[in-house]
Every structure is written in C-alpha cells, then in structure tokens.
C-alpha cells in the first residue's frame, strides 16, 4: 500500500427526486387550486382595506386582548393590506415550489483573473494613453492643473461656512444676571423662600418681561432646579454656603455630562439623577458626581432674595452649563 493519503470522494449531485405534482396530475391540479386560493385571499384583503377606508369611522376603538385598545379604522386598513400582500407572496412561492421545475442545474464558474496577455495589454494601453496626453513631458500643465483642482475644493468648504455663526461666548453664558428673579416653569410665578417646603424641588427659569418669548435655546441653558434642605444638612465650604438661601440651593438642570435634563430627585438620599446615563449628583455636597459617567458637578447658581423677598440670582452661574467643550477651562 502506498503512503498517499486517500481522501473521501465527492459522490456527485444526488439523483433528482420527483415531487408528487410532477407525476400525478391530480396533485398538480390541487397545487394549482391552492395557489389560486391564496390569490383570492389576497383580493379579499384588499376588499377589507377598501371597506375600512370608506365605511369604518376613525374614532371607533375596541378592546383586543394583548393589543389593548385598538382603533378599528387603522386595524382594518393594516390587516387588509397585510393579508393582500402576504397572500400574493405566499401564492407565488407555493407556485414556484410545487409547479415550477425543481431540478437543480449546474453552471460553471470562471476565474475572474484575465489571461496574462490581456493584463499586459491593458497596462500597455494605459501607459500609451498617459504618454499620448503627455503629462510626464509637460510638468507645467501637471502642476498647474493639480493646484487648480486643489484650490477649487475651497469653494464648497467656504460656502458652507454660512451653516452657522461662530460660537463666540454663547456656550459660556446664560440669561442669568445679578438680580434676575427665579420664576416657576411652568407658570412663570416668582418664588418666595416660604413657597418651598423643606424637601421640595422646584423647576425654574429666569424671569422675562411680559410679552417676551422664551426660546428653546434659552431654556436649554437657563433651566434651574431649586431644592430646599435644612441648612445643617449641607456639607459645603463657606463660599458655596453663601450661595444658598435658608437651605435653598440652585443648580443648573442641564446635565454636565451630555446635556439631558437632570430630572429625578431622590428625597431620602438627596441625590439628583440624570435619566440619560444615570450620572448621580449629591445635593448636600454641591452636586458632586457620586456615580455615572459625568466628570463634573452641576454648575451652581448663587441665590439670595430681593427687596420684595423674591428669590433672585446673586450672580451668573459659577461655570459654563451643559456638556464640556474644548475651550472650557474650569
């Protein structure tokens, strides 16, 4: 015996097995009827759709287990369309499977690589073409063309410059100024300290003149959360403590991570939680991050009261609000 290892051989394509419909005319007729039935079902689906469109009122709701309260009009349209389309597909496939030839055929592949001769000819043609254009012989044309093409790319970039204004210091400033009143959102009512019980939270915005409109851009920077604790619960340095008023502390509501609204306050733990990525801030420690991906505390708004006893800002925020950006330096 030789040492040549003998591999298992390819037995070749198995013999074709006929389907019933190939040999039995009755089975073929039955398959034909099945296909036709599917097409008729499809037509019925379209009837359901047309009927729902014309005759089913849009405000009829009824209860279906699992789905809950369902609008009859939409359901009729959708189910009609689904049945119409699905049954066409099912009919076509059933037709292909039962009645069309199911004998597998073999086609040959060819390697994609061309003959060596053709490849060489191709390279020659390209070279000849390039030589005919004479780029190599005329460096002046080559260089000026390259420069012109390169420069022409400036125009679209330049024209796109008007997509937006430059940021300026918009990312660093808000509407809060010394003496701006804090008003409720919604409602626009100014707040006195006594309006806020210990443990309560209020959502506020800077007061605007009557008739003026607050844009979403402003809300996105100005939103402030007021929280009232007992003053002794704070764990702040003297400066930070001076920014609070009778246990009321104000933070930017815009998350220092990626700018979501920090909407959840847990009264027992005195934690603020951002629902987007769960950054958690400790209110008693100047909104220090105690959990999650945010790397900075929430900016604090120094507050006090004005002559009429309403809560106002002592000064703008102590640092830029919202997510970080390159030019931010604190």
């Amino acid at each position: 015996m030789s040492n040549e290892i003998e591999l298992i051989k390819d037995p070749g394509l198995p013999a074709h097995v006929h389907r019933r419909a190939d040999t039995d005319p009755k089975a073929a007729a039955r398959a034909e009827r099945q296909v036709a039935t599917l097409f008729i079902l499809s037509a019925l689906g379209t009837v359901v759709l047309v009927y729902s469109y014309l005759f089913v009122d849009e405000d009829i709701f009824f209860f279906i287990p699992v789905l809950g309260n369902t609008n009859a009009h939409q359901l009729g349209l959708g189910m009609g369309m689904a049945i119409a389309l699905f049954c066409i597909g099912a009919g076509l496939i059933h037709w292909a499977k039962t009645l069309m030839p199911d004998e597998e055929v073999i086609a040959q592949r060819h390697e994609f690589k061309s003959e060596d001769e053709d490849r060489e000819d191709f390279v020659k043609t390209v070279k000849a073409g390039a030589a005919a254009a004479g780029l190599g012989r005329r460096p002046l044309i080559k260089r000026t063309l390259g420069a012109a093409l390169g420069l022409s790319a400036i125009s679209p970039v330049l024209l796109l410059g008007d997509l937006g204004p430059l940021p300026g210091n918009q990312l660093k400033t808000t509407s809060w100024k010394k003496g701006t009143r804090l008003v409720t959102d919604p409602g626009d009512r100014p707040l006195r300290p006594q309006d806020l019980e210990v443990g309560a939270v209020a959502q506020t915005l800077p007061e605007i003149a009557p008739g003026e409109h607050r844009s979403l851009n402003d809300i996105g920077k100005d939103a402030v959360l007021l929280i009232r604790l007992r003053p002794e619960e704070f764990n702040l340095d003297a400066e930070r403590l001076s920014w609070t008023y009778e246990g009321i502390i104000a933070f930017s509501k815009i998350c220092s991570h990626m700018g979501c609204a920090v909407a959840l306050y847990e009264q027992q733990t005195k934690h603020l939680l951002c629902p987007c990525h769960q950054s958690t801030f400790d209110v008693t420690r100047a909104a220090k991050v105690i959990f999650g991906p945010s790397a900075r505390p929430l900016p604090q708004l120094p507050i006090t009261i004005d002559a009429e006893g309403y809560l106002v800002a002592q000064a703008p925020f102590n640092e830029p609000v919202g997510p970080s950006f390159w030019e931010r330096s604190t």
Binding site: T70, L85, L92, I93, W95
Partner: peptide, 25 residues
C-alpha cells in the same frame, strides 16, 4: 427564470405583508 424570480418576487410580498401586519397591530 422562472423559479428564482417567483420565489424572490414572492418573498418581497411576504416581507411587505409581515411589515404591514406589524404596522397594523
């Protein structure tokens, strides 16, 4: 032609039908 065309064409309608069903319910 015809088997693959019928199957592929049919399958388009099946996918559309299933999507419409999901959209409906």
């Amino acid at each position: 032609m015809p088997v693959y065309m019928a199957k592929a064409g049919g399958f388009f309608f099946i996918v559309f039908g299933v999507t419409a069903f999901l959209g409906a319910v």
